[in-house]
């Protein structure tokens, strides 16, 4: 489905950006922004804050972040998306745990240099590392993301999401 849309050209091509904002007062906010190939917003979804108790932290132990980001927040956000993006990018390691809860290809994006690439590729000055399940689609994803990177810095939409989540936290 997403490949078909991508092949339709720029008109149908879209990209998802998934990240979180930790607020000391409110808890964890999640945000999911879908943009078109020119970086313009198509959809935005954000969660109510999730606050984790100390006991929950102890009981979930090291599995907490993966569960919270992947299943709880990330899963909830992706479930609300109406547009099917070519790929969902996140700048948060813990968010990679969302992969079992979605059929969309997922990749971690970080600012970095070519020599920092371990299992990924460079788009502009951003290092993109596809989720292990999507590693085989790396070439396809690289081509799609190069289209977007001609218009926007791949790390920039996360700043927009955090600005919106920060606004939501203050609202």
């Amino acid at each position: 489905m997403d490949v078909q849309r991508a092949e339709a050209g720029l008109e149908g091509l879209s990209f998802g950006f998934l990240t979180t904002l930790e607020s000391a007062a409110h808890g964890l906010f999640g945000g999911y922004l879908v943009v078109d190939a020119l970086g313009r917003p198509l959809e935005f979804h954000c969660t109510a804050p999730v606050k984790v108790s100390r006991a929950q932290q102890i009981l979930y132990g090291p599995t907490l972040h993966g569960h919270l980001h992947g299943r709880q927040v990330g899963g909830a956000l992706l479930a609300e998306g109406k547009v099917t993006p070519a790929v969902v990018l996140t700048d948060n390691d813990a968010m990679l745990h969302v992969r079992p809860h979605t059929h969309l290809p997922l990749a971690l994006v970080r600012r970095g240099a070519a020599e920092q690439i371990a299992a990924g590729f460079l788009v502009g000055e951003a290092v993109v590392s596809p989720h292990a399940e999507d590693a085989a689609r790396a070439d396809e994803l690289e081509a799609r993301l190069a289209t977007l990177a001609a218009a926007v810095d791949l790390c920039e939409p996360f700043e927009r999401i955090r600005a919106a989540l920060d606004e939501a936290a203050r609202h």
Binding site: H45, T47, A48, V50, H67, L68, Q72, L77, E80
Partner: peptide
């Protein structure tokens, strides 16, 4: 009893009818 994390947080959605 310790409550597990709530099932899933409430999600607020915003759609942009047409890009500028």
């Amino acid at each position: 009893s310790l409550e597990p994390l709530p099932p899933r947080p409430k999600v607020q959605s915003h759609f942009f009818s047409r890009p500028v």
